[in-house]
């Protein structure tokens, strides 16, 4: 009921608030002094608050990187935890300035919601987790299974496509909140828990005995996850887009949060342009020339935030895979700063 009320309020706001969310989010953000960033209420590695209310995760770091670029201060960001259902409406109505909440870039979301995806922070794909005791080794053996998942996501549709195309009967049990999905799966309501593979690694940690569960090898969909902003606000779109590019470029050029000060003295023109010692690339996005320096110095390059949040040394233990730089056989590629 609470959710319904929130949605109604959101709907009414759409009707009344004329163009609260009009052009100029960057100016609005500068004026109010912080960025309101929509994030996942709890997905380890992507966006997760600890017991002191500090948020960690890749998605959260993207918000902080934008704050670093705009204000030179990573604390000038406020987080709004949003359910899968609420996220796009919250952005449409101007409740948040940007959404960084493991959201899949799809055509319909990009074209009919009045939103723009600014890039891809994480190349993901949907997978399945089952109990080891079932003895299942492939997703093609799941005929007749009950699948627990979250409502309002692309996963619901992918599951339908996968089971239908393989002519397998199935049952889908869709919860509003991720925590209930995990609980219901843990309680044995479902044989299968399905979401993005990164999410499965994260949620396996929440189960009573993580070791009793196995993630099946099949990846049944493409899930490019990225930040989202409102359509028709190119200035702000550029800021968020280039924040991400700056992090990837920094990794490619070997600039890290630790060596960024030394790198400022580098003779490499690409590094000089990125860190603002040559040219005036900050002007193009209405920011200072040290915008990218601040991002790398305060948050880190792409590889750093990946390793710190989801990498092999974290509890999630995810290898770079598709998210490696293009030079290393992955898909992460950013246009040059030039």
């Amino acid at each position: 009921m609470k959710k319904a009320i929130v949605s109604v309020v959101v709907g009414v706001t759409l009707g009344v608030a004329a163009t609260a969310a009009s052009a100029g989010t960057l100016d609005d953000v500068k004026a109010k002094g912080f960025i309101q960033c929509g994030v996942n209420p709890g997905l380890p590695g992507f966006s997760n608050p600890d017991d002191k209310g500090n948020w960690t995760g890749i998605d959260v770091d993207v918000c902080r990187a934008v704050a670093a670029a705009v204000f030179g201060d990573t604390t000038k960001v406020k987080f709004t935890p949003l359910s899968a259902k609420e996220r796009f409406t919250a952005l449409q109505t101007g409740e948040i300035d940007m959404l960084s909440r493991n959201s899949t870039w799809t055509m319909s979301r990009d074209t009919s919601l009045g939103l723009n995806f600014t890039g891809i922070t994480y190349y993901d794909g949907q997978g399945f987790m089952v109990r080891k005791s079932l003895g299942v080794t492939s997703a093609l053996e799941l005929s007749g299974a009950s699948v627990c998942t979250q409502t309002g996501t692309t996963t619901e549709l992918n599951i339908a496509d996968f089971f239908r195309s393989n002519n397998m009967p199935y049952e889908i049990v869709a919860f509003e909140k991720n925590d209930e999905v995990v609980q219901a799966y843990d309680a044995g309501r479902c044989d299968v828990h399905s979401t993005d593979a990164s999410g499965l690694h994260a949620e396996r940690l929440k189960l009573t005995n993580p070791g009793d569960h196995v993630i099946l090898p099949e990846i049944i969909s493409k899930e490019p996850l990225g930040p989202v902003v409102r359509q028709g606000d190119d200035g702000w779109f550029n800021v968020v887009k280039w924040t991400l590019f700056a992090m990837v470029n920094a990794e490619e050029l070997g600039v890290t949060s630790k060596n960024v000060d030394e790198m400022k003295a580098s003779e490499n023109p690409e590094i000089k342009r990125l860190l603002g010692t040559e040219g005036a690339f900050g002007e193009g996005i209405a920011l200072g020339n040290d915008w990218a320096y601040n991002i790398v110095k305060m948050v880190g390059n792409y590889g750093e935030i990946f390793d710190a949040n989801v990498g092999p040394d974290t509890p999630l233990g995810i290898s770079r895979g598709l998210n490696a730089l293009w030079k290393n056989g992955g898909l992460q590629y950013a246009p040059p700063v030039r």
Partner: peptide
């Protein structure tokens, strides 16, 4: 008001 809203926006 959940899934359909989310698919169609």
């Amino acid at each position: 008001a959940g899934t359909v809203l989310n698919q169609t926006g």
